[in-house]
Design a protein around this nucleic acid. Structure first.
Length: 466
RNA sequence: GGCGGCAUAGCCAAGUGGUAAGGCAAGGGUCUGCAAAACCCUCAUUCCCCGGUUCAAAUCCGGGUGCCGCCUCCA
């Protein structure tokens, strides 16, 4: 068994073969940090974090890099509007990005390079493109000679001549050709700038990723990923820059995630239909948001609404309840010594299904279905009169494994109950023993008002937060 | 004008040639002191429409309809 993934470059699902056995070099385009991220920005962070987790789970050593664009027109604009400097703004939103994605269970990358700290490499990258004739200086700007790069359009499968027919490509007086794109922008008065061989200015948008990939991962990497809207022009331009300079394929596999929609339309800043992660996690457990995202295939568009989130919340609750029930039962169970039995085989079959689905282009929708099947099996097992510790532990282990890959948490931090509540629970247990059900129900209602839900099981009473 | 995606139950969503996963919601039942949780049963003779290929199509081919996206900053 091996992992397959859809490669935008070939438009096919391909067997994954890393450059180096057992290792994966992966780069994911990160955000421009001029605002809090919205759910649409969060999707690539979440789904490629899941890809990373899965590759690691399958034994790969993954080197994972994701950038922050911390200098850019939009940040300059935001800085001017807020009366702050660029650095203050970018630092603020880098911090916010880590908080928001962290809440969604996204692991920190091995390195989150910024444009500002990669400046020497960016400038040298551009210089070498100029030396090779792929770029030219024009009144303090530097442009890439798009037509000189023969493979231009290979990722988005656009013919360079069809692009010209589009009416939206700006001509620009400084360009030799309307298709040329900027590598270095000269600074306007008052703007933040760096010194360069072409005067004071700052990098264009695309060059940073080319420089960072080269610096941290090398000329050719295994996986380059990002949102679908980056495939053109961003990734196309990255390919042009990197392959023109390095004369090697930039990435073997290009992965792109689908959009998040609101009412079937792409969530975007310009439409104003975006929901900030910052805000939604005040309303829903971020764990629910994560579960919602991984519940669909990463390439499918997904609609986003409170109603759908509620549905996910209920589904996740079911999984968590089973997990808690397994743990509760574990405390009451001795190991009888019997080892191999049909339950173990059942667990294995669901785990195998999970692996098979994830192997197939990270089909987490089906992988979640496998998790639900495991939950169902666990619930059946929990109805047995006699359970074995080793089997319960194996259920928990496999649930842990799946939850790890999906990046969801199955366990709440159980804060300690205060003495009063604990006393009430004890009192109720006594009352039930004495068949004083009126008092028992009274206590249950009392606790319910305090958001403590009681469940009586043959193995005793357990509680959870509502 | 070019390139691409999608259309499956009340809702979400897999499935890309072998006879419709999974979840949410809903209804009925079992268990329970009552609940909760769980379990069982029911819930698409059918996959946007029309043709075609095939022993066999939601899946392949042709045509049509509708929605969405990229070609401009965008995850």
């Amino acid at each position: 068994m091996s992992i397959k993934m859809y490669n935008t470059l070939t438009r096919k699902i391909e067997q994954f073969k890393p450059l180096e056995e057992g290792k994966v070099k992966m780069y994911v385009c990160g955000p421009t940090v001029y605002n809090y991220i919205h759910i649409g920005n969060a999707r690539p962070a979440v789904v490629f974090d899941m890809v990373r987790r899965y590759l690691e789970y399958r034994g790969y050593d993954v080197e994972y890099i994701s950038n922050f664009t911390d200098v850019d027109d939009k940040i300059i604009k935001a800085a001017n509007e807020m009366g702050e400097d660029v650095k203050t703004i970018s630092e603020k939103f880098i911090k916010a990005y880590h908080e928001d994605t962290g809440a969604l269970g996204v692991k920190t990358a091995d390195k989150h390079p910024t444009v500002t700290e990669t400046m020497p490499e960016i400038i040298s990258f551009i210089e070498r493109l100029v030396d090779k004739g792929y770029a030219y200086e024009s009144q303090g700007d530097v442009y890439f000679r798009t037509r000189k790069f023969d493979d231009y359009g290979k990722l988005s499968h656009q013919s360079i001549d069809d692009l010209q027919l589009g009416t939206r490509i700006e001509v620009g007086e400084k360009k030799e050709d309307p298709l040329d794109f900027v590598l270095w922008k000269s600074a306007k008065p008052g703007e933040i700038y760096w010194n360069s061989p072409w005067g004071n200015g700052r990098p264009g948008w695309h060059i940073e990723c080319s420089a960072m990939v080269k610096k941290y991962l090398g000329d050719t990497i295994d996986i380059h990923a990002g949102g679908q809207d980056l495939s053109f022009p961003h990734h196309e331009n990255e390919i042009a820059q990197s392959e023109a300079l390095n004369e090697k394929q930039m990435a073997n596999y290009w992965l792109h995630n689908g959009y998040i929609n609101i009412d079937n339309e792409k969530m975007s800043k310009s439409l104003g239909n975006f929901i900030l992660v910052h805000d939604i996690i005040k309303k829903f457990d971020p764990n629910v948001v994560r579960f919602f995202i991984v519940n669909a295939h990463y390439r499918s568009p997904i609609n986003f609404s409170d109603e759908l989130l509620n549905s996910s919340e209920n589904g996740l609750e079911r999984i968590k309840t089973t997990y808690a029930n397994l743990q509760h039962r574990l405390d009451e169970t001795a190991n009888l010594g019997e080892e191999k039995d049909k339950w173990i085989d059942e667990i294995d079959s669901h785990h195998d299904a999970f692996i098979k689905e994830m192997d197939n282009d990270f089909n987490s929708a089906n992988a979640v279905a496998a998790l639900f099947e495991l939950v169902k099996t666990a619930n059946l097992y929990l109805r047995e009169k006699h359970t074995q510790k080793s089997v319960l532990e194996y259920f928990l282990k496999r649930m842990d494994d799946m939850a790890y890959v999906l990046g969801i948490k199955l366990i709440e931090e159980k804060e300690l109950l205060d003495d009063e509540i604990d006393g009430l629970i004890q009192e109720r247990i006594e009352a039930r023993k004495n068949r004083d059900f009126a008092r028992a129900d009274e206590i249950r209602d009392l606790l319910k008002d305090r958001n403590i839900i009681l469940e009586d099981t043959p193995q005793g009473t357990r509680w959870k937060r509502g």
